[in-house]
Amino acid sequence: MNKQPEKYQVFEKENEILRHSKDVLASPELLSAQAWQQEYERLAQSYAQLLGEVKLLTSVSDRLQNKLNKANENIARKNEELTQTLEMLTRERIGKRATTIVLILAAFFFIVSELVIDPQLQQSAKIFGASGLIVLKVTVAIALKPIEMILENLLLKTAVRKKMS
């Protein structure tokens, strides 16, 4: 009989029983009727034991498979939660960065407007009136929010693109 691969050596005893049975069958004339009966009884006993073990192994194996499936499902769920948390964190970080950039821009525009544009607007105010000047400044202030949103989206897309590459 061929040498069994190592992982099947666990069935050494069963292989031995099979080998013995084949040997007995190969020379039937060597055994008496009583010896045949004894051989048959031994084989039936071994078969019953083997059947019991097969039932146990199948049952244990199925249970282990279920355990692995549950563990896999759990890992997939945790992975999904982790991905979502990471996305939220990225969005949060990018939002903060966009706000900082917009604040810096606002401060820059404020300084520029106070030093350069404002004196000229004072001249225009003589034409459009003081309320015209206020409306203009409020419009610039309101425009900061959409700028922040556009900037946030832009940074988010860049982050996603970086992540994909």
């Binding site: 666990v10 005893k13 192994l57 244990v60 194996s61």
Partner: peptide, 13 residues
């Protein structure tokens, strides 16, 4: 805590 199928056969042995 956990054992694989071939270990359960070894346990039987």
């Amino acid at each position: 805590e956990y054992f694989n199928t071939s270990s359960s056969k070894c346990l039987v042995e």
